[in-house]
Amino acid sequence: MAITKFDQHAMAAAFSEAGEPETAREILKDTGAQKKQPQAHHQAKKPYLSTVILGVLSLTAYYYVFSNEKLVTDVFTRGGIYAIWPLGTALFVSFIHGAFGSNLLTVLGLEAKKSH
């Protein structure tokens, strides 16, 4: 039979009343650990969906630029205020494609070292 949270609390109270507070604490700590476990599992979940979405967005942006090569190269090099086009595109790509790259590395299991 599985031990429910109520049983655990009741056991902890019993041990506490019997003059063994340390054991009671241990029993309650286990409950805490059980609670945290699914959260830790959740954190380790890899961002597959966002990688795919960002990848598709990035690919679409690239497709649009390269399928309209003539228009893009003409407008983007007019100079003056038109400078906003190449700079804006570079920034936009850095956000979308940069986020895609970050997620891709996480999916591939390449993450920064965490201090022990």
Binding site: T77, G79, A83, P86, V93, S94, L104
Partner: peptide, 28 residues
């Protein structure tokens, strides 16, 4: 350089497509 209208965005984007991943790999 943008005001001078000399940026070839196609080349910049091609370079960025891999360098944005490379820079993060180097950082980690």
């Amino acid at each position: 350089w943008g005001i001078s209208g000399l940026i070839d965005i196609r080349l910049a984007l091609l370079l960025l497509s891999t360098s944005l991943i490379g820079v993060q790999l180097g950082a980690l």
